[in-house]
Nucleic acid binder design. Structure first.
Lengths: 189, 189
DNA sequence: TACACATATGTGAAAATGCACATATTGATA
DNA sequence: TATCAATATGTGCATTTTCACATATGTGTA
């Protein structure tokens, strides 16, 4: 249900095609929302029927035609109503790696460690990308008033990844120390 | 698809009813997985058909009968296979509050601040609960080897909530300073 | 006395989501 | 020379997830 608010929200920054909206999703909303491109196209179609957005086709010679979507008054109204309604839906999260981590007692410690190492590297890479992104988009931590939200949530993403990295380090240290305990016990036998 | 691994994983700790599994979900997996109780019952039914788990009914006089589920060899095998397969699915996340936060430029700053204040309070409360839970389950940070996973992921949850609190503080400070800038601008006009 | 809550397990239907596939062209890489 | 990625928009189907509802009883609360 809230996917439409995400799309309407992106459209407040200007007209865009489904393809561009998908890209912006991946760029700026990846830390709190995921949507498959087929879902985005479908939702845009529905919203056009409900007259929340409108579109017109732009013919392209070298590439396929594209459909530029524009936020309509009704959509703007609906979005603002949602923003001003203080009800906040419960977040939903499914994290495969954390699920596996919760079951690390079932597998060899070295396998657990390699899961964590890999996760740490991915998040290290992510932090790097994010820092780059932020220095190009908000040089000197300056942002225009229309970018307030993006500024806040991109910092959330950066911190979230850093939190992951720190936790991976902590968890790997715990597992290493458990490994040591085991080898001491073996020696004493 | 991975819901079944979560359930199989919980069942490695002993037999349980669907009701209990739902409770354990809320207690220990809330920070990385959510499942509606109807989904849990349905998945258990499917897994029983596939002989991954088995059940027997326990008659109760004062309460409705309950069905105790037990992990079967095939289920154990499937779970371990999944644990040892290093493929990790992309996490999915939908966070209403962060979506709203990304659109804070659309609403008055005081409304934005009250969203953040509320979120901060909720996470403060959550950290408190988590600290209690951890001191009862892992007094002196001691844990049995079968609880390694739970020990690691509950710490993830604790840190995650702390990360939220810190971010809320940071974001509120940013918005306050933007408010001040505005009022200075108004005075200069 | 009425209502909510905990206990306990589900069904039917709708909505949301993901997967495989389809189309068409250019430019880059192996 | 062949394959892959980027551009651009979708359909059909299956799976996943949620929502409203149904059942039944004891206990605590307003």
């Amino acid at each position: 249900m809230a996917l439409r608010y995400a799309l309407l929200g992106l459209l407040t920054k200007g007209e865009a095609t489904g393809y561009e909206l998908n890209q912006r999703f991946k760029e700026t909303m990846i830390h709190f929302w995921k949507a498959h491109h087929t879902q985005i196209y479908r939702e845009l179609g529905k919203m056009e029927q409900e007259q929340l957005v409108s579109s017109h086709v732009i013919h392209q010679v070298e590439y396929p035609d594209k459909k530029l979507y524009k936020l309509e008054k009704q959509g703007q109204h609906l979005l603002l109503q949602w923003m001003m309604n203080m009800n906040v839906a419960q977040p939903t999260l499914k994290d495969d790696l954390l699920l596996k981590a919760s079951l690390f007692h079932l597998i060899p410690k070295d396998v657990a460690l390699s899961y964590l190492q890999k996760a740490k590297e991915q998040h290290l890479f992510g932090v790097g990308l994010m820092n780059e992104w932020r220095t190009t988009h908000f040089p000197g931590n300056e942002f225009s008033s229309a970018d307030l939200g993006e500024y806040l949530t991109s910092e959330f993403g950066r911190r979230y990844m850093q939190h992951w990295i720190d936790w991976c380090d902590w968890a790997m240290a715990i597992i290493e120390s458990e490994k040591n305990k085991e080898s001491i016990e073996r020696k004493q036998e």
